Simulated scan of single mutants.
Amino acid sequence: MKNITLSADEHLIEAARQRAAAEHTTLNAKFREWLEDYVQRQRQADEAIAFIRELRKHVRTGGRKFTRDEMNER
């Protein structure tokens, strides 16, 4: 595992450490969790865009624009 150095307001760091301790974890563990989530959200967005592009190859509307109500019909 690689180390990195971050800088932030000392009061913010202390408050974050206290919150992590209250959650029975460490600030380091919370940062690793956040970093993984941060990267995963971009992957999910990229996959969603790729899926939409793939759907566009198979779905045609004939140029018709749907209203919000039509798009939300169940």
Rank of each mutant, 00 (worst) to 15 (best):
R68L: 08
H24N: 10
H58C: 01
T67E: 05
F31H: 03
D9R: 09
T61C: 00
M71E: 13
R17D: 02
L55V: 02
L27N: 00
N72Y: 09
L6K: 08
R41E: 13
E70T: 04
G63A: 09
D37K: 07
E47Q: 12
T26A: 00
D46R: 10
F31C: 03
E73P: 04
A48S: 06
R64Q: 11
Q40Y: 04
N72H: 06
G63L: 07
A48C: 03
A20F: 03
Q18H: 03
Y38G: 05
E36Y: 05
E14R: 08
Y38M: 15
A8F: 09
A8W: 10
Q42P: 02
R53H: 14
K2H: 11
E36K: 15
E14Q: 09
R74L: 15
M1D: 06
R64N: 11
E54I: 03
D69R: 14
E73M: 03
N72K: 13
E70I: 05
K65L: 13
A22V: 00
L35K: 13
K30N: 08
K65N: 09
K57I: 08
T61I: 02
M71Y: 14
R74T: 12
S7H: 08
S7T: 15
A48Y: 04
I52F: 14
Y38Q: 10
D46N: 14
T5Q: 13
L6F: 09
W34Q: 05
T67I: 05
N28L: 11
Q44W: 10
Y38N: 14
R43Y: 14
A8C: 11
T67A: 05
L27Y: 10
I13Q: 03
E70V: 09
I52K: 07
G62Y: 05
R53V: 10
E10S: 15
R17F: 01
L12G: 05
L6I: 13
T26N: 00
A16E: 06
N72S: 08
M71I: 08
I13E: 02
I13C: 06
D69Y: 10
E33R: 13
T5S: 07
Q42T: 07
G62R: 04
F66T: 04
N28K: 09
E36A: 09
M1R: 11
D69P: 01
W34R: 04
M71R: 15
T5N: 04
R19M: 00
A48P: 01
A16Q: 11
L35F: 12
F31Q: 01
A22K: 06
E70Q: 15
D46I: 04
Y38D: 12
T26D: 01
V59Y: 06
E36H: 14
A45H: 09
E70K: 08
I4V: 15
E70D: 02
E10L: 07
E10H: 12
L27D: 01
